[in-house]
Amino acid sequence: MARIIVVTSGKGGVGKTTTSAAIAMGLALKGFKTAVIDFDVGLRNLDLIMGCERRVVYDFINVINGEATLNQALIKDKRCDKLYILPASQTRDKDALTKDGVEKVLTELKRDFEYILCDSPAGIERGANFAMYFADDAFVVTNPEVASVRDSDRMLGILASKSQRAETGQEPIKEFLLLSRYSPSRVKDGGMLSVDDVKEILSLPLLGVIPESKSVLEASNAGVPVILDEKSNAGAAYKDIVDRYLGEEVPHRFIKVKRGLFSGLFRSK
């Protein structure tokens, strides 16, 4: 049975698309047939982050409108043959997205895929609502920063009341916290909310902490999901997150400041 995961946050710029790309790649590398859908109609970017922007022929809206089949629109990843990308339309109005249309596409994908990731746009409008409406699990991407935490909480309220699971009285969407752009040294200095602070405020189980890392920008520059960067902490964090999501017990990393050889001697504060 396929599982639908929404990657959401409310606030923009916190790392939803980076997370969608990394986790979709991670699940596919584990051998699961995975599709990742861009719900940001008019402002698509998942294709860029995945590095397949020049291979887009048909998009999500074309499939909804019956102008292309799902197989024509799905882009097979060149690095992993278990991974497929469904790009958003760049030219259409966002009203082109309809609940029936989204349901039709998801139902068709569910027959063939094991995991379907829905990369939500920012905000709480149409695209964001449809991205989460049919979800089984929600990855709430949050930065340790007041506006992001508040918007995540708002999103949790919407997940709990306006999803299909909520409206039909099924078991609620399983929500997970992904704390991104985390800087242990700034937390230690008292200049950034800690992972425990955010967990406590949102009362969400933590799926993983993604440290602030320059490799995230470098990966997006190159169109390579950061999880493929073997040397980067952010990539390793996403690998852990995939393992944890699949039920493995992986200790949390990147939460504490790493003590260097000399840090004890030169610590000034």
Partner: peptide, 26 residues
């Protein structure tokens, strides 16, 4: 208090308030 402690306190108050109005409305 550190700025993080101030942020936490502000968020706790805000989130509690927004949640209560949310649950009542629903």
């Amino acid at each position: 208090p550190t700025s993080a402690a101030i942020a936490k306190e502000r968020l706790q108050i805000l989130v509690a308030h927004e949640r209560s109005s949310r649950s009542q409305l629903s």
